[in-house]
């Protein structure tokens, strides 16, 4: 099954979504990503028990930071799916890409170009 997802998404593989910390998400935004999301396992099915739950809380924290800075919190998201769900992975990727398209470039990048 070879499924294609939007080419403007850069996938970074980690052993567990619980490995993704607040600083990783922030750094992505800081370095110019227009959006960043975590695709973790289904809730209740984490191999390390609570990795994906922790990831969700960190995503929520970053959403709040962005809100404080006047940046759309929707640029950061948490999704849950099982490893066997290839089509769902593509669906999420498309959904996120569309969302970011609608939001437009991150304010961080807009200002960089203007300057």
């Amino acid at each position: 099954m070879r499924l294609s997802y939007p080419s403007n998404i850069k996938v970074i593989q980690v052993p567990c979504s619980g490995r993704v910390d607040i600083i990783h998400l922030l750094k992505a935004i800081e370095d110019g990503a227009d959006g960043v999301y975590i695709a973790g396992c289904l809730e209740g099915e984490c191999h390390f028990l609570t990795g994906n739950l922790k990831a969700r809380k960190r995503v929520n924290y970053v959403k709040k930071v962005l809100e404080e800075l006047g940046i759309e919190p929707e640029r950061v998201e948490m999704f849950n799916l099982s490893a066997g769900e290839g089509p769902r992975f593509v669906e999420i990727a498309k959904e996120m890409a569309e969302r970011i398209q609608e939001l437009g470039p991150s304010p961080v990048n807009v200002q960089k170009k203007a300057a």
Binding site: I22, L26, K27, V65, L66, I71, P107, Q111
Partner: peptide, 13 residues
Amino acid sequence: GILASALKIARKK
């Protein structure tokens, strides 16, 4: 680290 990144994001904006 988190504060440093947040402040830098704000400034870039």
